[in-house]
Amino acid sequence: MWSSGRRAGAATLLAPTWSIRPVAPLASSALVPFVGAGILVLVWSLVSLRFHVTVFPSPLETVQEAARLLSNAELFQHTGASLFRLFLGFALGSALAIPVGFGMGLFLFVRRMMEPITEFFRFIPAIALVVFALIWFGIGESSKVFLIVYNAFFTVAMNTEAGVAHVLPNRMRAVQSLGGGRWDTFCLVVVPSVVPYILTGMRLGMGRSFATIVSAEILAANSGLGYLIYSSREYSKMDTVVVAILLLGALGLLADRLFRGLTRRLAGGYLPAGDATGS
């Protein structure tokens, strides 16, 4: 993720001298990650031999179940329901958070006024608010979307603020001395500098939002991947559970990589460090 120039590739780490180099070709083979996954599937198969499918489904049983779920619309509906909540909540939460974050970064007084709020709420896990969300919004869509909004808001606001704080003064001065006014400075320097931070905030908030939505759907919903997992428990359909878990992992990974790719593109190859504590 960082330039490898000044950093040690791991090959140099434990090799005391260059005389023990022959390890390298094995490690650099493109097949190695697949061997790793292969070993995992093998172990999974061996363990599953000892258990019934209702306790520990085998890889084959899982694949068969995945095929069954894909053949009817059920899996798509649940996935769609979860993703819809996630994206709606994320869009709303970010839309609220970005102006607040800019306000906090640009104006000292706003920052100081917001601090007690952010410092307090970011340590309350979103899922703990599910009880209020249910009381306030009922068990419909709005309670789940509310939780994601909450989740996204603090992470995105705090990372936006950090981005504004990290704008390089000399870049602003450069634009000013080229004849740019406040608006030019904002558009040409502040915004492009902050966008990668906003995206990093969104990326970090995304992982938590997945966890939140799954919990919320387990506790109170009749659709979504969390609901699918929890309802499968009643019929001991552990194969369905495993399919849903793997799907969640894949979706989370995909979302992370999309945000990373976007951030890198917009930041010229640089991925800013984020503050992951924002709720």
Partner: peptide
Amino acid sequence: GIPVIRRLLDGTVEFFRFIPPIAMIVL
């Protein structure tokens, strides 16, 4: 520290990292 181990496990660990832990509750 050890390239072979990293390349063996990196993809797997990276994948598991994105599974929301609470999704494991039924299992």
